[in-house]
Amino acid sequence: MSQIKRWFQERLPISGLQLAELTNEPVPNHLRRWWWCLGGTPAYLFVVQIVTGILLAFYYQPSPETAYQSVRRITEEVNYGWYIRSVHKWAATLMIAAVILHQMRVYFTAAYRKPREINWMIGMCLLLITLNIGFTGYSLVFEQLSYWGATVAANICDTVPFVGVYAKQLLLGGDSYNENTVPRFYILHAAVLPVTMIGLLVIHIAILRLQGVTELQFEDEPADGPQHFDFFPDHLYTELIAGLVLMILLSVLATIFPATMGPQANPLITPEEIKPEWFFYATFRWLKLFSGTVAVLSMGFIVFTMFVWPFIDSGLRRLTGLDDISFWIGIVGVFLLVGLTTWEALDAH
């Protein structure tokens, strides 16, 4: 045993102690509280998505002729195919929800303020990538709803002045949905976007480690007690618990609400009721409220505002002198988001 250890240490000159030193970041005390330690949830779900996604890729065939049949085959024929597919679908849903919750937490604790503006913007990129992975993944099933969702989304791109038409062509690989589209969505969903995401995540976490986690002080804690605890093994256990709870949740959801398949995409018939995935409900409703270009541009403006919010926040605070102004704006934003989503969910058309 010790020989093997020595063999390795001669070649990899790093000791367990050094490793522990490197990884054993002191964790702020507020992460002992269960509601404050969910930052790892999206990351855990991302791992689940990578594993199940790779598995699905073993059977999925990205071409319009075969896409639907291969998904059907995964769902109906392959051993546990329905389970893996359902876990992938539910993990996606939970991941998007977790990302949004994480962002809200950061926002309402004003953790984006100086010096963390850059990390906020990286986080915004991660949000957009997550949403795009969700969108492209949904389209891969090639069922009626996802087909028409993609068509509508591409034509929304088209309404952006000047660049829109190019964005649409880039997205679809042509003027309309064609034989290039599914492979394109596939490579975006399974390679380009996830790899970008991994890169950004590394930077996101590296910056976090460099700056340290924003520390929150709770009133019921003694101010003179230890302010940190060990990552290993204490916080790891917490993450393991969170992970297991997620796995159980995913398995139960997959069993009770397995991923289904709508009718196969038919370019000649638009379904009576088309809806995007739930995370685009608010956007979809917004686009219905305002016409064409106005809606798209205003949407873009909102995203841009969110992107640079750390700077707007500091400007607003300076102008108004109210330290809490972003908090209240955030409350309005959340109500708007929840309202639009519910509206879309309840409205048939």
Binding site: V78, N79, Y80, G81, L240, L244, M247
Partner: peptide
């Protein structure tokens, strides 16, 4: 035990998933 049992079972599903379904 819990970790090995839970994730082990999951891994066994993955194995069965990758092992082709019966030959039709």
């Amino acid at each position: 035990f819990g970790l090995v049992a839970g994730y082990g079972m999951f891994a066994s599903f993955i194995g069965r998933f990758l092992f082709p379904s019966r030959n039709r």
